[in-house]
Amino acid sequence: MRWIVLLACLATAGCATGPAPSASGGAGVRPVAVTLFRDTVTARMSDGGLCTGVREGRAGPWSTTLAGCPQTWPVAVLRPTGRPRLPLAPAAEAPWVTITPPDRPALGFGPRVGS
């Protein structure tokens, strides 16, 4: 009987995972590294989180929402790539990818110089 009570307590403690992800994800958080793949975008955030946006369609520009981290922000891939992996850098003009934090302007990212 004590084992059942102990297991129930452990199971309950293991289910307490903290707050659910939110669109805000922290006022000062920003992407520090963005990588465009054929079917995904990854963003490593300044708080250490790794976010991923997955492509649902197969043709042309696409959009998604970041997942796997507290920052569930909209992402737009304006110029898809056929390359398996393309590191991106901040780009003020002609971005390939935009990430839009809440209550802030969209952040643009494009290929790094020499990519």
Rank of each mutant, 00 (worst) to 15 (best):
G114Y: 01
A27K: 14
P111E: 02
A91C: 12
A11Y: 02
T17E: 07
L107C: 14
A94Q: 11
C51E: 04
M45H: 01
E56C: 01
D39V: 12
A94R: 15
A67D: 13
A27Y: 14
A92C: 02
V41G: 05
F109G: 00
C9Q: 00
A23G: 06
L50K: 08
T81S: 09
G110K: 00
G68T: 09
P70R: 09
L36N: 04
G48P: 04
P84A: 14
P105L: 10
A106K: 05
L78F: 07
G82E: 07
D47Y: 00
A92N: 12
S24I: 07
V34W: 05
G82V: 06
T100C: 00
P90C: 12
P84T: 15
V75R: 03
P19T: 08
V34I: 00
A11R: 10
V29C: 08
G48L: 04
L107K: 13
L78H: 09
R112Q: 08
P70D: 14
P31M: 06
R58L: 02
A106M: 09
P70V: 03
V5F: 12
S22C: 02
I99A: 01
T17L: 11
C69N: 13
G60F: 03
F109E: 03
T12A: 15
V77D: 06
P102S: 01
W62P: 09
E56I: 14
L88I: 08
G114V: 06
C9L: 11
Q71G: 03
P95D: 03
G57K: 10
G53R: 10
S115I: 04
A23S: 08
